[in-house]
Simulated scan of single mutants.
Amino acid sequence: MLEKMMPTVVFSFLTPANIRSSEIAKSFFESVNTDLNGASLGKYGEVEPLSRDFANDLDGACKLWEQNLFWSETQRKGSGAVLHGTSRRHTNLSFYFDTPAPDGPAWIKFLTSVSHLLAVDYSSVHFFDKKSRTEEDEVLEGITSHDIQESLPTIAWAGCFGKPYVELIGKDDFESSGFVVVEPITESLIFCQLTSDPLDYIDNYETFRSRQDSVKSILGKDYFLGAPNATVPDFQFEHEVA
């Protein structure tokens, strides 16, 4: 009997900051354990095969975080990585896991707290069944610094926009663009939620897509994938030259 595939949730964080400290790593992993019940945290290491266990050696993972770190967990088919940036590229922290049912409030709590911790320029949570519906949405399955330096791909179910976007687009435009929730986290970090339920992407896609298109039109399509010479922020990076 074939095993039924579960939907997948992907979290992505792109930060210009140097986040190599073990204290930041510990705070991140504590948030995964507290808010997401440890989803995706199984084995970890620098390269495959991953042989060290989070349950027995969290301190080792925090120390290894200073380099590039990979992790995976077989039960919920999750995995993640932190890939540190350079003077021209964001640090990319992303991970995913399968889940039988979404927990929007927990995901939002995690997204906003970690976005604040990492001082992100951009973060998102994307929830989909089997595969994303469009090429633009597929980018949200593994968005990179290169992607946002070219344009925003589209609007995720929920995300945070950091200082470069707040300065470029403006808080007033975010607040009037049609998101169901817009909340400032700090003066330079704003949380935006597209619809009330992450399941809308799976169960009410046409309504979800209509809201996506409407928000992009109000914010300005020049910021998004498909625009010729898309308008992007002037990103400033704190990393040492690699």
Rank of each mutant, 00 (worst) to 15 (best):
L14Q: 09
F127P: 03
T34V: 02
L14I: 08
S123H: 05
D53S: 15
A158F: 01
V181C: 14
V32T: 13
M1E: 13
S31G: 12
I202L: 07
I108E: 14
K216P: 05
L199F: 11
A81C: 06
V215E: 05
P49N: 09
G170N: 11
E73M: 01
G178L: 02
V10K: 12
E136F: 03
D98T: 06
E175S: 13
M5P: 07
G42Y: 00
V215C: 07
Y122N: 07
H239Y: 14
F208W: 06
S12C: 10
S22T: 04
D137F: 02
L69T: 01
G142L: 02
G38I: 00
L168F: 13
A106S: 14
N229T: 02
F28L: 03
N92F: 10
Y96S: 11
T186V: 01
P100L: 05
H116S: 09
L50R: 06
K216W: 09
E175G: 07
F11Q: 08
T34I: 01
S176G: 14
F174A: 05
D121E: 06
K4C: 12
W107M: 08
W107E: 07
S176F: 10
C160T: 14
P7W: 03
L194N: 12
T154F: 03
D59T: 02
I190K: 06
E135W: 02
S21M: 01
M1G: 15
D222C: 12
G45V: 00
V139G: 10
F161K: 08
P16S: 14
S124V: 02
Y205F: 12
K109N: 13
K171W: 10
K63A: 13
S210A: 12
K4W: 08
L140I: 04
D35E: 14
D172E: 13
Q193I: 01
F95S: 09
G162E: 07
H90P: 07
P198W: 04
D222L: 10
